[in-house]
Amino acid sequence: MGIGGPQLHTGPEPRPAGRAVGTTRVHLLVAILLAALTIVAFVSVGGHLLPVGWLIPLLLVLAAAQVCMQLLYYMRLKWDRRIFALLFGGGVALAVLIVLAVHAMLSL
């Protein structure tokens, strides 16, 4: 569904709440992937497998991947109204801006 427009709630039938889009298979698959990424993250830090210069970007990428998977599949952004993603994306963008800018300016 699009962002808005009257067609939003003028359809003949409301979408049944909680349409079964996330099946057990998807849930398990995502859970296994998330667990794998978490293990990689913890082992690479605990086992000192990589130089620090490589480790930090790796951890950030792993975290970003996990966050995206949870948002898309667990929280169903992949299937739900686009405005959810738009609003939440705005929140995340602002969050990143705040963290980076405040940190940068306080460490001047």
Binding site: F88, A95, I98, V99, V102
Partner: peptide, 17 residues
């Protein structure tokens, strides 16, 4: 939840600094 993101962002910014 979007607004909660900003809440945690402020806390994380505090922690990081």
């Amino acid at each position: 939840l979007a607004s909660d993101c900003a809440l945690f962002a402020a806390l994380i910014a505090t922690y990081v600094s």
